[in-house]
Design a protein around this nucleic acid. Structure first.
Length: 849
RNA sequence: GCGGGCGUGGCGGAAUGGUAGACGCACCGGACUUAAAAUCCGUUGGGCUGAAAAGCCUGUGCCGGUUCAAGUCCGGCCGCCCGCACCA
């Protein structure tokens, strides 16, 4: 029998599925649905191993659910706006649109080689005018619903990408794409009002049971809810100052008030105080370099203004401008209680301010308790606090809040760390924001009848700034209100807007409305979403917000877009360096006796850690090269084997070859078995011996693989299939053909979702005329997944000393007797009488002597 | 600093509190072959006793605890990884 020819087989079955429209999905509300989605790719031009892993997992689930009878939606699209296209335009002089669509065409071909069960009829790219036109409609809808606004704010400016960024897109003080240190700028920008849903986005996390705990926690921390009190100080200059605190109980320990350098009061005071103005400048200068934030020496400037203590008008607290107070959180102003807050303590020590403990830990004496270099933040009883003395922390918080609320001076509030989502980008290759600026009428939304606002075809990428701004005609329009001359908004949407609703569009990609409500009601939410952990906050939080917006506008009836989320690990590879410390590609080396050398030489190469495949470390393996040599099924099997899907996987040549050998082995097992009866042959009753063993192995494998795929434990499903293959290989000549057929068919059906081409070839070789993709998932016979006799380990004092084979369901007494009768047990007991015998039915016997 | 996760053979990794190391990779031995590749069979945590069959000790980062029984639960350390980071 000929070796399995993967290339021939894969081309053939992909053609067969295509001509039968096997993966064309119909919206059929009568059938139970399953929506499987992988995060859609940016069309960089080539697929990488991360894509292969991601789309393999999704495809396994999609094919598995399809076989189980679900109506499966498994679409593919392109997250196609973004900066790389602009960079290509600038560097190569191409049109960003042409560049993007060429990349899409190339990647589509590569993805198709993987044999994914995708409904390609639903494919779209976010840069298709048909898509972004609908997004513009949604932008206007959100605007009318009060979920979009334009405001001046301190924003993050990425000096390399020449655009503003949302808070979520600043990682360690650097732009998420460019890696450039971001600067603070005060600019007028467009925002989505995600904070309108702060509490809802937080609370609903609890209901996302099929999300990783880690992602829920990260979102929880990002939203950052804290309960506290907002109240007003009266200032010596006649004004008032709002502060927010979570520790109103420590109010009598206050020794100063501090405001942010960006606080309006600081700006105002600086007008008449050159030294203060210089101090604020200094704060800004240091504040933007993130290295300085790390070491963050506390700095303050005494404004000379004082604040009256809210419970004692004669008690005056100095008001400082302090670099550690952030304008973006709370009110941008605080009161400082040094004894019970580390930052306040550092500040007080530096400026010689009083440190008065007001919360005394249990067992300490209020008269002698002092705070040194470490603030006390634990529980205790109030002291030095007048009417609060003796109360515990919570009671004191309540008392202060109650009194200040009664005076109308304060309110209990909930504060969030989450800020509104800044969505405008000063980039031309994105979805134009459909707004118009008129000198007379101000900001005007584009009329819906004027949509879509298409990007011009002739963008010039020379010079700096946004090419949309410099285009000779594009932005010049008449005002929809007064008809006078006006200009378009030249900012475009953050590309994360594009990806915040694409999953809803897949429900009906031909719909005249952005989202077809009926189709969305059937398909949404996504049952299983798969992608990288890097979107734990960004995309996954924005989509949750956007879905709430869509719900409010009547486009859907759901709040949560993704019922199940799985975050896969990265694909890694060993790294290599030559003696000059330069990275060396895997293709340039060869290994001898575990050491690496440059190919065909004795020049040694240093083997480094396994790291995420990246161009910069030259440790990338191109998927198409692997598919070319071994076929798609081998690369898919590799991605599913051994390593649990949430962990990082290391690509190795040896592993790939091992997978390829297994592909061949399955093919041999199927094609080299002789004298198989025809499909559908009944198995004679009463199988015994080797035949019964094989039947049991078959049904155990069906049950276990089904269970493992249900739980996304692909690596264990793979192990189960190896076990079944071993059992088939080990079956001796006594096993009837019908039993062999049952085992082979089960194995082939079980690998169907994972190695679909090999499975079809084997299914055909087994005499079937139908396709696996049309064949239902096999059912395990419960009577065969359990054997009649079981092996139970017998321990003496917790140490395993022997085992007994006994009928399943034997009563404890006979199990105990059999255990005590074992030679090994008699020996281990050394004549001592057992003090106690613990029998755990069908598990273990432990004899305590 | 705060929050979370993880530490099991040479490697990837299995293991509802109940036989630690399933399954794979690698290695080694054997069969087939003129030979090699491919394939098939077998061994493989460490140590010890034994001619063999078999058996014993030890072993899941470290120390302690709970339990008849701990990789698993609890407490305390050590190490690594990730996220957030002056959030009042």
């Amino acid at each position: 029998m000929a070796r399995y020819n993967a290339k021939e087989s894969e081309t053939r079955w992909q053609g067969e599925w295509n001509s039968r429209q096997a993966f064309l999905t119909r919206n059929d509300p009568a059938r139970p649905k399953c929506y499987v989605l992988e995060m859609f790719p940016y069309p960089s031009g080539r697929i990488h191993m991360g894509h292969v892993r991601n789309y393999t997992m999704g495809d396994v689930i999609a094919r598995f659910r399809r076989a189980q009878g679900f109506n499966v939606l498994h679409p593919m699209g392109w997250d196609a706006f973004g900066l790389p296209a602009e960079n290509a335009a600038r560097e190569k002089g191409v049109n960003p649109r042409d560049w993007t669509y060429a990349n899409i065409a190339a990647m589509r071909e590569q993805l198709k080689l993987m044999g994914l069960s995708i409904d390609w009829s639903r494919e779209f790219a976010t840069c298709d005018p048909e898509y972004y036109a609908h997004q513009q409609k949604l932008f206007l809808d959100f605007y009318k619903a009060g979920l979009v606004y334009r405001a001046e704010a301190d924003v993050n400016w990425d000096p390399v990408d020449q655009t503003v960024l949302a808070n979520e897109q600043v990682i360690d003080g650097r732009g998420w794409r460019s890696g450039a240190a971001v600067e603070r700028r005060k600019l007028s920008q467009w925002f989505f009002k995600i904070t309108a849903y702060s509490d809802d986005l937080l609370k609903a996390l609890d209901g996302l049971e099929r999300w990783p705990e880690k992602v829920r926690l990260m979102q929880k921390n990002w939203i950052g809810r804290s309960e506290g009190l907002r109240f007003k100080f009266d200032l010596s200059n006649g004004g008032g100052l709002d502060v927010f605190t979570t520790r109103p109980d420590t109010l009598f320990g206050a020794s100063f008030v501090a405001i942010s350098p960006d606080h309006p009061l600081a700006t105002e005071l600086a007008k008449g105080d050159a030294k203060l103005a210089a101090f604020i400048d200094e704060c800004h200068r240091i504040g933007t370099s993130e290295a300085a934030v790390e070491t963050a020496e506390k700095m303050g400037f005494d404004t000379g203004v004082t604040a009256a203590h809210p419970f004692d008008a004669n008690w005056k607290l100095p008001v400082y401008v302090a670099n550690f107070v952030l304008m973006g959180y709370g009110t941008g102003a605080i009161f400082g209680c040094p004894a019970h807050d580390q930052r306040d303590l550092d500040f007080a020590r530096k400026y010689g301010l009083p440190v008065l403990p007001v919360v005394i830990p249990e067992g300490a004496d209020p008269k002698t308790f002092v705070v040194g270099e470490e603030a006390y933040t634990g529980p205790g009883k109030l002291a030095n606090s007048r009417f609060l003395d003796g109360l515990d922390v919570d009671a004191a918080k309540n008392e202060v809040a109650k009194r200040l609320e009664a005076e109308g001076r304060g309110t209990r509030t909930v504060n969030y760390r989450l800020r509104d989502w800044l969505v405008s980008r000063q980039r031309p290759w994105g979805c134009p924001i459909p707004m118009i600026r008129c000198r007379t009428c101000g900001l005007q939304p584009v009329k819906e009848s004027d949509l879509p606002i298409l990007l011009p075809d002739d963008l010039q990428f020379k010079g700096s700034g946004n090419p949309l701004d410099h285009h000779p005609t594009w932005k010049h329009v008449s005002c929809p209100q007064c008809g006078g001359s006006a200009t378009r908004e030249t900012d475009t949407c953050d590309t994360f807007v594009d990806s915040s609703w694409y999953f809803a569009r897949f429900a009906d990609t031909k719909s005249q409305s952005p989202v077809n409500r009926e189709a969305a009601d059937y398909w949404l939410p996504v049952d299983q979403y798969i992608g990288g952990i890097e979107h734990a906050i960004l995309h996954l939080l924005y989509s949750r917000f956007f879905t709430r917006g869509l719900h409010r506008l009547g486009y859907t009836n759901i709040d949560e877009p993704f019922a199940g989320l799985f975050t896969q690990g990265m694909v890694c590879h060993e790294t290599y360096k030559n003696s000059n410390g330069e990275w060396v590609e895997p293709g340039e080396i060869e290994k001898r006796d575990g050491k690496a050398f440059l190919k065909n030489s004795t020049t040694p190469v240093v083997i480094g850690a396994s790291e995420k495949m990246s161009k910069s470390k030259k440790n990338v393996i191109a998927p198409e090269a692997i598919i070319d040599v071994f076929g798609a099924d081998t690369i898919r099997w590799f991605m599913l084997s051994d390593t649990p899907p949430e962990r990082d996987i290391e690509w190795t040549d040896a592993g790939a070859e091992g997978c390829w050998r297994f592909v061949q082995r399955i093919h041999r097992l199927v094609t080299e078995t002789e004298n198989l009866p025809p499909p559908g042959t009944k198995i004679a009753d009463g199988a015994e011996g080797a035949a019964l063993e094989l039947r049991r192995a078959t049904h155990r494998a069906i049950a276990a693989v089904t269970d493992d795929l249900d739980g996304l434990r692909f690596n264990r499903a793979v192990a189960q299939i190896y076990t079944l293959a071993n059992a088939i290989g080990a079956a001796d000549a006594s096993v009837p053909g019908a039993v062999r057929r049952e085992a082979l068919e089960a194995m082939v059906l079980l690998i169907g979702p994972m190695m679909p081409h090999l499975a079809e070839t084997c299914w055909e070789a087994l005499g079937h005329t139908s396709l696996i993709v049309e064949t239902p998932w096999p059912q395990a016979d419960a009577a065969l997944t359990r054997s009649d006799t079981i092996t139970i380990a017998v321990q003496v004092n917790g140490k395993r000393r022997g085992e007994i084979k006994i009928a399943r369901g034997a009563d404890n007494k006979s199990v105990e007797q059999a255990a005590l009768a074992l030679d090994a047990i008699v020996r281990a007991l050394e004549g001592k009488a057992p003090r106690r015998v613990i029998v755990v039915p069908e598990r273990i016997v432990n004899i305590v002597a």
